[in-house]
Amino acid sequence: MTATPLLRATELSKTYRVGRALLPARRRAVQAVSEVSLEVMPGETLGIVGESGCGKSSLGRCLMKLQDITSGTLEFEGRDITRASAARMRPLRREMQMVFQDPAASLNPRRRVGDLLSDPFRIHAACDRAEIPDRVAALLRRVDLLPEHAMRFPHEFSGGQKQRIGIARALALRPKLVVADEPVSALDVSIQAQIVNLLADLREELGLTYVFIAHDLSVVRQISNRVAVMYLGSVVETGPVDRVFSAPRHPYTAALRSAVPVPKLDVPRPARTILSGDLPSPLNPPPGCRFHTRCPRATALCRAERPALLPDGQGGALACHHPLEA
């Protein structure tokens, strides 16, 4: 590919210090994101899946520069923004926006929806003050709400409607990139489908690029072009979403895929690999391949050496010593 990626992360890591020791150096380190490299091309949607504690939300916040990056680099449209100051990030904030899992928690309950939605225009002085109400009304219509909803408070809306408001706020300034962190997982199935459709429509209309973080494989498959599977802070497999879910090559992807209950009878199911045990503590990740403690294919090599994420020759990448057959 010759085009410049919209967003490129190279060996991005995020380490948190935890504990109450007086000296920061004595606190224990948790590597929430460990040397993640990925690219997001303009117009595509990259899904990021993984179970709780795999670091996908941390990664999302790093990609948005909402938290400091410990090491590695992050580029937006070819510009290195790894260490960009808040002041330098400010104009970029118009270009990259985030949608959160819990819309109720991310909307100030004491302010009217109209005020919440006019903030982006005011903060970035994006248009005439007089124009703001019209812009807000247009935004509300765009997410299938009514302009008169601007006068209401967030608690007067259902969960699905709140998420529409969250999306409207993210889209106010026509960003190029939207990072959505579990945007539908708090919603009922029927509402979930509405929001997924809305996100897809907006992508077409506004030419958006998404990073879509979720634990639900079928939702990620519905909206993404490519997917990255994370386990304990690392990306273990990436590739076109249909290929990754229909013929996973990393044993973890395969296990994840086979664990999802399918709402159909009499369909040939991929042989289920029920993983034993729980996720190891990120405080104390296993040496070598981080998945080896639960992996049915693990060998001495996996215990000793961490596999690198290498291109698989089919537009994806894989970090496994003993991948499943393509």
Binding site: S190, Q192, A193, Q222, S246, P263
Partner: peptide
């Protein structure tokens, strides 16, 4: 409403 995990992906989900 449930997006399928295999087979063709519908362009849109038929949400309620």
């Amino acid at each position: 409403s449930i997006p399928p995990l295999e087979g063709a992906r519908p362009a849109r989900l038929s949400a309620i």
